[in-house]
Design a protein around this nucleic acid. Structure first.
Lengths: 315, 315
DNA sequence: AGCTTCAGATAAGTTATACTTAACTGATAT
DNA sequence: ATATCAGTTAAGTATAACTTATCTGAAGCT
């Protein structure tokens, strides 16, 4: 009797009945029967210890207590309702903001997103290409594709692509560079955007595992792997290509990877989002689409001899 | 999912948890177990489709959605709570406002209320003596004692006193007025506050039923019955006394009613209050006390010959 | 005047929500 | 290593919230 609030269901029934000045109309609004609503009003009156409605024959009217209670309950529930709708609007946003590294955005996402956009015309896509580790709450990003070893604390995280690297060149250049030893005479293309990985995988690593001497000095350096790949496609040199970024060029025979040795990188690509958000319709659709695309990625024609990066001891 | 409000119990659980930043504290405030509260938050998150709390190890923190939801829910529930407490204050008021006619207030209530006040020291009593038919909602009156035939539409109503009238005089005057015929030589006291009753009961009625000729002309007129009674007690004349107002004087032998004929009045006293309010503690206490006092009213020593007012045909 | 309609109330029954207890989990503190 | 803290989960219970069917007492219509 001295509680701060009565049963909220009863209070809500009252508010609706007071607004409509009709039990039947209120019941209809709340999707219950008039009998149920009548019970709720009666319950509220019992909690209060006095009536809030005077029952006339074909109508009801508010008592003094009812008239005192009606305006503030109307305001209170309107506030709650607006808050709920507001937060739902956030949840139901049609915008999907995706973040990934610049190279992945360019070489993996961009060539494929047309397909996703076609099959989900209601989703408004936004891309934020960055190498920075984003904060989901602060950066207004829905889903991220990250490269690295993790960990992804407090986030939903799923591996999507395991990366490997091998010398890749244009088919024309492959007619000149026919054996691994021929690489000593080749122009090697370098990419610097891999330096944040703990155990660097570069030309030295590959030459060593191949049993060759040191690689030739010099050669063009690129700050982004996709640029290095483009140069190789253009015939400028040989790139230590990453599978994730070169899959399309390999498939299209713009690049070839003629030597079987491939270094399997410990770091991998994961798709991450805030815990629980993975069930939100748009994010779920995107994740499912990514997984499908990963499965459909081109497998190399030649057999590959994988050497795990973790097992390599650099001299 | 697109409803205007989620389950209110869940929303309230959220509000408390957000305020406390602790599930256990919120559970304690709402008098439920932490497990129950945990379920409510989870239910809310399922309705929303995303989390509102991030569970840390020994704490929780609000997500972006939670932070968006918290202020307005806090405000909404505060509004509802204030409204409820406000209307409860009206209900739980320690003041009991009683209304009755001036004569009844003076001759029945006033001599007795000391006893009621003694046994209910927490109740603050207020009297509104009026002949007007009060409106419970507008007049801020809790309970009324009405004289008349009713009806008491939409109100709780209980008969308490059936009225009757007979010639009453002081014991000294009774030594002179020994027979009904002696009343022809007496000073008859008249009361005008009975005129609103449909079928007037006055001296003419009594004389006719007693088989006497017309009563003597003239005699003092009083606008209130209690004043006429006081005059009779003082030995000024004979009053056609009403039982309800003279019971105490008869008991104390200040007045006597020596002639058996008594006219039973159709109108009676009822105690009335708004429907449902009769269960409110203070009103209930008052009603019970009134019923007890009525039962304890003094019965006349002499047998009474009652003639019902309805059966009297005035010549 | 008799019948129909309207709107809320009540009785009896059902079901889903709201809750409890007991045990678990994963850190942190001692 | 053990105790403590705070939230979670599984299994079960209780009751609030609801439904259906019927009733009631007017008002309205023919």
């Amino acid at each position: 009797m001295s509680t701060r609030l009565p049963p909220l269901t009863a209070l809500r029934a009252f508010e609706a009945a007071a607004r409509h000045m009709s039990f039947a109309a209120a019941a209809s609004e709340l999707n219950v029967t008039p009998a149920a609503l009548s019970f709720q009003i009666k319950s509220l009156e019992e909690h209060l210890g006095q009536p809030v409605f005077r029952r006339l024959n074909r109508a009801v009217e508010l008592t003094k207590a009812g008239r005192l209670l009606a305006p503030a309950t109307s305001e209170g529930f309107a506030t709650l309702s607006a808050a709920w709708q507001n937060v739902q609007r956030l949840t139901d946003s049609q915008t999907l903001t995706i973040t990934a590294g610049p190279a992945f955005t360019a070489k993996w996402l961009a060539p494929r997103m047309f397909d996703f956009a076609q099959s989900h015309p209601d989703i408004e896509l936004r891309f934020a290409a960055t190498l920075r580790l984003i904060d989901f709450d602060r950066d207004e990003v829905d889903v991220a594709i990250r490269f690295g070893e993790g960990p992804d604390d407090g986030l939903y995280s799923q591996d999507i692509i395991h990366e490997w690297m091998s010398p890749m060149m244009s088919p024309e250049m492959a007619k000149v560079i026919r054996t691994p030893e021929d690489l000593h005479n080749a122009t090697l293309l370098h990419q610097d955007d891999f330096n944040f990985i703990k155990q660097s995988s570069n030309w030295n690593t590959w030459f060593q595992e191949q049993g060759l001497g040191p690689p030739p000095e010099g050669g063009p350096r690129f700050s982004q792997a996709d640029h290095a790949n483009d140069a190789a496609i253009a015939g400028t040199g040989v790139v230590l290509g990453r599978y994730s970024l070169t899959e399309r060029a390999l498939r299209d025979n713009q690049l070839v990877a003629p030597f079987p040795l491939a270094i399997a990188v410990t770091a991998r690509y994961r798709i991450v989002c805030p815990e629980g958000a993975e069930d939100r319709p748009h994010i779920k659709a995107f994740i499912n689409w990514v997984l499908k695309e990963v499965t459909a990625m081109h497998k190399c024609r030649e057999p590959r001899r994988f050497v795990d990066q973790k097992d390599i001891n650099l001299l």
